[in-house]
């Protein structure tokens, strides 16, 4: 099984452990992730604030390259890249003149046949059914699954999970034996791109998230976005200052959590790279159990 893969800048830089853990679980499950040849920046937050055509063309070129490489499905772990890709695809497929114009700019023909998946969609479609046979350890911790803003929004375009109370990660963690708590900040903003330019805002927004997770007794926050991760992990000093108390709750990518349960070496999952040390121990051997969760339907109105 072969799927396309777009790492983007964060997975090659600040979020290397995300990349490492995605690759590690894909390998374990028997899926080959093929990077788009000669990929470029997705434009991230900067391009769509400055120049509309540029913001469409940067992702469009990547998508066209992926098609040229014969890929039909593309896994995009970074939530921001994922958002840009899906939005561009949506916009181009609903606006013919714009589509033509962007093809002209990138000098390629993007047909729009790609399916774009974020990591939780990838897990939902390709990994979750293989868990029972591969999992070695029970992830017997209380966890707060944090989705942030981009993974499940806007529903009109993504048609995946439910915007206000998403469940996909919760279901995966429950399957792994975790106690995924019901909490208040699942989809609240972490401060995203303001990590560098407006750190106080991040301290406040991410502070509320960490505080609520800790208050409800979570032992780890589970994420699937490099920005969420760096805000909750790297900015912990500022967060603790804002909250006026020290916190040691680790922030773990969902792929790392799955990797731990699959029995992959913690180093290979990059768990040592975090600012807030991950000291999760005492995992018990996995015993399969039936969990009573209903798969979330696409709840929004068309």
């Amino acid at each position: 099984m072969k799927l396309g893969f777009y790492p983007g800048c964060s997975l090659e830089g600040a979020s290397r452990e995300y990349n490492e853990s995605v690759m590690a679980i894909a390998e374990k499950i028997g899926i080959e992730l093929v990077s788009i040849p000669d990929w470029n920046c997705c434009g991230a937050t900067a391009a769509h604030n400055l120049n509309k055509e540029l913001s469409l063309s940067l992702p469009a070129r990547n998508l066209a390259l992926a098609e040229e490489a014969g890929l039909t499905e593309l896994v995009v772990p970074c939530a921001a890249c994922y958002s840009r890709f899906t939005m561009v695809q949506h916009e181009l497929m609903h606006d013919e003149p714009l589509h033509k114009r962007v093809n002209e700019i990138i000098g390629k023909e993007y047909k729009g046949n790609l399916r774009i998946l974020n990591v939780i969609q990838f897990i939902d479609e390709y990994v979750i059914d293989k868990l029972d046979e591969n999992v070695k350890f029970e992830f017997n911790k209380k966890v707060a699954c944090y989705y942030g803003c981009l993974l499940v929004r806007p529903n009109k375009v993504l048609k995946f999970d439910r915007t206000e109370d998403p469940q996909t990660m919760d279901i995966v963690m429950k399957k792994l034996g975790a106690d995924a708590i019901d909490w208040a900040y699942k989809t609240e903003c972490c401060g995203a791109g303001f990590s560098v330019s407006f750190t106080e805002a991040v301290a406040r927004l991410s502070g509320n998230i960490v505080e609520d997770a800790v208050h409800r007794g979570a032992e780890a926050i589970i994420v699937a976005c490099p920005m969420c991760h760096s805000n909750l992990d790297m900015r912990r000093k500022e967060i603790d200052k804002f909250n006026g108390k020290k916190s040691d709750i680790p922030v773990i990518y969902i792929t790392q959590a799955i990797g731990v349960a699959l029995g992959i070496d913690h180093k290979k999952l990059g768990l040592q790279r975090h600012f807030v040390p991950v000291n999760l121990k005492d995992f018990k051997p996995f015993v399969k159990k039936e969990i009573d969760v209903e798969k979330p339907q696409n709840m929004e109105v068309e």
Binding site: E164, W183, A184, E188, D212, H215
Partner: peptide
């Protein structure tokens, strides 16, 4: 408008 209500 109210964006969210949660119990604590």
């Amino acid at each position: 408008r109210v964006s969210r209500i949660y119990e604590r």
